[in-house]
Design a protein around this nucleic acid. Structure first.
Length: 688
DNA sequence: AACTTGTCAATTTTT
DNA sequence: TTGACAAGTT
């Protein structure tokens, strides 16, 4: 492997001998290159067995990409005939490694064989149900997601349910204190783990069982962590356990790009690295290969105003490009129109659509944009949002499989108990739950009893339940023959899923898409069964399926389309042309970061501060390679009221000589400005 | 099960 | 002002 085309710090990171290493990798500084080259170096030059290397990421996509790049490096080295070595690497998300550990050590933990993994939707189901019991009548006043956020933060801080201390006078905290212990007990009762458990339970396991700890502390001789600034406390502890024996940790990240602290990520992990891992070597990658000096200067000028950071300035030897275009529009419609027309102009001059991205703070800002892009006939693709909710049909089939494999999985059972509709209403479910509770048994047992006329149910309901029990028994029997594919097909037939999908869909294409989704699931399951047959393997597969993000299934990168995404969604991406829109106070920085504790229902522990918003702006600015537009509105409707908008403080932090100001409002009418800050801009608008 | 009506909130969402 | 969501109505 040739390390000659790496710069000095990159080379140092790649060749670093052993012990803890932190690579502070600025935006566009070749961070992925360092990780992949380091792995290739370990395998090829140092002869490390790839099975003893673990690389941890936050997304499956990042893991897959990394594996691909390492495979190419190893292949390209000519030192080995086949790229099979890359396949032996442990590369995945924190959660998938946690799940692997739990599956291997299931016995030590005392987890049932058929445990399942609950995703966010499943978790919400649990919380909603508990709320009905705990706060019957007023349960709707509380947002389940907000309670889950609190539970999640508590879990990751290893605060046990019984120790949860509600903040004084915080209603949500008080509800959480009531729900959290019940939630955890319910999960265990359902033989289910949530995402947080996939990290915290392995940590607990490693801490409490010396033999298990020994096994995993020597499983990997080298551990690499990508996006280290996004690790939360429990993930840090997991890493610590994994490298406890040798300290061979290579953490790569950028404290200036930490934008997930609201989810428990702690940017201080980058700052405290030397304290967490004594004797650590720190390498800073600040040469940027992505953006023009002007763009970098703008980004540097903004991030410089954050205090709590390690501190670095990106630099580049690239030739300079055009100034940053700062645009003021009258309102969001005008702003969107400007963006659309500017894109049309650029593509008219030969720029490809796919080289352009429009970034915004909140999804809601995409509305006017989509409208304008459609009008101007600019092809675009939006990432994020919740297009994956269409996967309902897939989740339904999975729920059937889960119930067949694990009868304690109550949330899955409740999902399918009346789907497709079979006349089992809420009242019947309530009765069943009641009888299950009274007899200390599972909902499934109650269903089976009810189906044979056991409970206080009417014949119609008993019949309906019998239908469900028959479908599940049939599914189980079919699965036991080993032919999972026909088992699932049989199930779909029995419950007439296609019929229901056709009836529920508004159009033929919509129902066909859903049927195709189900078919895709069947194909995947069949594929998996070929590799590793049996119930146990299917269960394992279903668990990993809960972790599989939906985006990786169908992200067609092929089309030549403008990308629309939130700033969070843009992390890790780069584009020749970037539009950052809505650069206004209350939008970026978001209003909620400006009012410290006022009714902050969703995020108790996280002190909302502007520094994370500044990092978001920084992430946005550093996505641009050649051309950067920052746009804002003079006025917009807010909660129905037309209000004047103040330019973002971040905009004012960019040195004026780096910008070219354009006021698209000036053409039609006198520009509308508000507050003192805009006086600054007015001055430039007139000199423009 | 499909409708209407009322209430409430209004970021970001890797797993 | 919109919109999502859920309870109440037919």
């Amino acid at each position: 492997m040739d390390a000659g085309h790496l710069n000095a710090p990159q080379r140092e990171a790649v060749l670093h001998e052993g012990g803890p290493l932190l690579v502070v990798a600025g935006a566009g500084s070749g961070k992925t290159r360092v990780i992949t080259h380091r792995i290739a170096h370990l395998v090829l030059e140092r002869g490390v067995d790839p099975r003893h290397i673990a690389a941890l990421t936050f997304t499956n996509k990042a893991a897959a990409e990394m594996r691909g790049r390492v495979a190419r490096l190893i292949k390209g080295s000519g030192r080995t005939a086949e790229g099979g070595l890359a396949r032996q690497l442990t590369m995945g998300t924190f959660h998938s490694l946690g799940l692997t550990i739990l599956q291997r050590e299931r016995a030590a933990l005392g987890f049932p064989r058929g445990f399942v993994v609950y995703d966010t939707a499943d978790q919400m189901g649990v919380v909603r149900e508990l709320m009905r019991h705990v706060r019957g009548g007023e349960d709707r006043r509380y947002d389940a997601r907000s309670i889950l956020t609190r539970i999640s933060l508590a879990k990751n801080a290893f605060r046990p349910p019984e120790d949860y201390q509600p903040a004084d006078g915080d209603d949500y905290d008080e509800v959480t204190a009531e729900i959290y212990p019940r939630y955890q007990a319910a999960l265990r009762g359902f033989a289910a783990l949530d995402f947080d458990d996939l990290i915290t339970e392995p940590v607990r396991l490693l801490r409490e069982h010396a033999d298990v700890r020994e096994r995993w502390a020597s499983a990997f001789s080298h551990v690499l962590v990508d996006e280290y600034q996004d690790t939360n406390r429990s993930q840090l502890l997991m890493v610590k356990e994994l490298v406890a024996r040798h300290g061979n940790l290579c953490a790569v990240g950028d404290d200036d790009q930490s934008i997930y602290s609201w989810r428990g990520a702690d940017p201080r992990h980058i700052q405290d690295f030397e304290r967490d891992f004594p004797g650590a070597r720190v390498v800073v990658l600040d040469q940027n290969y992505r953006s023009t000096p002007t763009i970098l200067a703008s980004a540097n000028a903004v991030i410089r105003n954050n205090t709590d950071r390690r501190g670095k300035e990106l630099w580049s030897t690239r030739p300079d490009g055009p100034p940053v275009t700062a645009v003021t529009a009258v309102d969001p419609e005008a702003e969107a129109k400007f963006v659309a027309q500017e894109i049309a102009r650029l593509t008219g001059d030969g720029r490809r659509h796919r080289d352009i991205a429009v970034l915004y703070r909140s999804n809601i800002q995409s509305r006017e944009l989509e409208e304008a892009l459609r009008t101007t006939r600019v092809p675009y693709v939006m990432v994020g949002g919740q297009q994956f909710y269409e996967r309902k049909e897939v989740k339904d089939v999975i729920a059937y499989l889960r119930v067949a494999l694990s009868e304690r999985d109550e949330i899955s059972l409740r999902r399918i108990i009346n789907y497709p509709a079979r006349g089992v209403g809420p009242t019947t479910v309530e009765k069943l739950l009641h009888s299950a509770h009274a007899r200390h048994t599972t909902l499934w047992r109650a269903v089976v009893d009810g189906a044979s006329g056991g409970g206080e149910l009417r014949p119609a309901q008993a019949d309906a339940l019998a239908g469900l029990v028959a479908a599940i028994s049939e599914l189980r029997a079919a699965m036991d023959t080993g032919d999972v594919q026909s088992a699932v097909r049989g199930l779909i037939e029995t419950i007439d899923l296609h019929g229901d999908l056709r009836a529920a869909s508004t159009s033929l294409t919509a129902s066909q898409r859903r049927i195709d989704n189900v078919e895709a699931l069947i194909r995947q399951v069949t594929e998996q069964q070929k590799r590793k047959p049996g119930r146990e393997a299917l269960l394992e597969y279903l668990r990993f399926l809960s972790l599989a993000s939906d985006s990786e299934e169908e992200r067609d990168d092929g089309g030549d389309r403008v990308l629309l995404t939130t700033l969070h969604g843009a992390k890790g991406l780069e584009f020749p042309v970037v539009f950052l829109i809505g650069v206004e106070e209350e939008i970026l920085p978001h209003a909620r970061s400006l009012m410290p504790h006022a009714n902050d229902v969703s995020d108790p522990d996280h002190v909302s501060d502007v520094s994370e918003e500044r990092r978001l702006a920084y992430v946005g600015l550093t996505r641009a390679q050649e051309m950067l537009y920052v746009t804002r509105c003079a006025s917009r409707r807010r909660h129905g009221r037309q209000v004047l908008c103040t330019p973002s403080r971040f905009l004012l932090e960019i040195p004026e000589q780096l910008m070219e100001l354009r006021d698209v409002a000036a053409e039609s009418r006198e520009p509308v400005h508000a507050g003192e800050l805009s006086a600054f801009f007015q001055k430039f608008a007139t000199t423009d």
